[in-house]
Amino acid sequence: MINPHKPTLNFDKVEPASLKHKAYVALQKAIIELDFEPGQLLKKSELCKTFGISRTPLTEAIALLVQDGLVEVVPQAGTYVARFSIDELKEGAFIREALEVAAIKELANSITKQNLVELRRNLRLQKAYIDDQDIQGFYNLDSQFHSIILDATGFKKLSRLSDTAWMNVNRVRRLLLPVPGRVDATFVEHQKIFTALEKKDVNLSERVLREHLGKLMTYVAPLEKDHPEYFLLN
């Protein structure tokens, strides 16, 4: 079991919006952070009670989560957190790599001192969280590191497109980071990306980024073997 504790649903911390949107954001966050396991039944009555809302906005929120690929509604059976699909993970990883490689090639020639300051600060914080053995904190900084690169291109929609494609991949990455040595290896890979950008070396930046992102699926295969209950049958 991933999280034996009761899921944390931060409904009240969501910015003011419709009840549907607040439920959607809270559930999306809880699912991505693995507070709900892949394949776990979502009990609507309990969620309505937790959020203090009726079934209508909850049902509308769940419909959005179905569109995200995070939830599956099985007629006459119930609503479940979606299991991982290897094909969808490959597709998400492919789209993310295509977007981020294009971004780093654009950025390598024009990266600013401020961009480098932000990346360097992020790396220092990554090291601090590693030293504190705070995997959750490191995970957040890992995501932020890549967002800095995407946002630095100046293309406002790029990060959102990447996050959408990467949504299910983000779930599986949370299972991978606790793998012994993976956090340290990820940090070293981030350092290589930073060094390449600092040198304004386009080819090196592209190569080290591809190597970094390309390792994901090699870690997923043993994960599928160890936790088949989290994956759809081929």
Rank of each mutant, 00 (worst) to 15 (best):
residue 97 E to F: 04
residue 64 L to D: 13
residue 39 G to M: 13
residue 68 D to A: 05
residue 40 Q to V: 08
residue 87 D to M: 08
residue 46 E to T: 11
residue 88 E to K: 12
residue 106 E to N: 15
residue 102 A to C: 07
residue 82 A to L: 13
residue 74 V to L: 11
residue 94 F to H: 05
residue 56 T to N: 12
residue 93 A to T: 06
residue 26 A to I: 07
residue 49 K to H: 09
residue 82 A to S: 15
residue 110 S to V: 06
residue 82 A to C: 14
residue 89 L to P: 07
residue 113 K to T: 07
residue 74 V to F: 10
residue 89 L to Y: 05
residue 50 T to R: 05
residue 74 V to Q: 14
residue 49 K to C: 06
residue 89 L to R: 02
residue 109 N to C: 15
residue 30 A to Q: 04
residue 78 G to V: 14
residue 40 Q to F: 08
residue 63 A to D: 15
residue 108 A to M: 09
residue 27 L to W: 07
residue 71 V to W: 00
residue 66 V to W: 01
residue 50 T to F: 00
residue 67 Q to P: 12
residue 112 T to N: 05
residue 84 F to C: 09
residue 32 I to H: 00
residue 45 S to I: 10
residue 91 E to G: 08
residue 104 I to V: 15
residue 104 I to E: 08
residue 112 T to W: 10
residue 63 A to R: 15
residue 40 Q to G: 12
residue 93 A to H: 09
residue 33 E to A: 07
residue 51 F to G: 01
residue 29 K to L: 03
residue 34 L to E: 08
residue 86 I to C: 09
residue 43 K to V: 12
residue 107 L to Q: 06
residue 60 E to W: 03
residue 72 E to R: 12
residue 108 A to Y: 10
residue 83 R to T: 09
residue 80 Y to Q: 03
residue 94 F to V: 02
residue 26 A to V: 04
residue 107 L to C: 04
residue 113 K to W: 00
residue 76 Q to T: 14
residue 91 E to S: 10
residue 97 E to V: 01
residue 89 L to W: 01
residue 30 A to S: 12
residue 94 F to A: 04
residue 66 V to Q: 05
residue 58 L to I: 10
residue 56 T to K: 14
residue 109 N to G: 15
residue 95 I to D: 08
residue 66 V to M: 09
residue 91 E to W: 09
residue 48 C to G: 08
residue 70 L to H: 13
residue 47 L to W: 06
residue 93 A to I: 11
residue 85 S to Y: 09
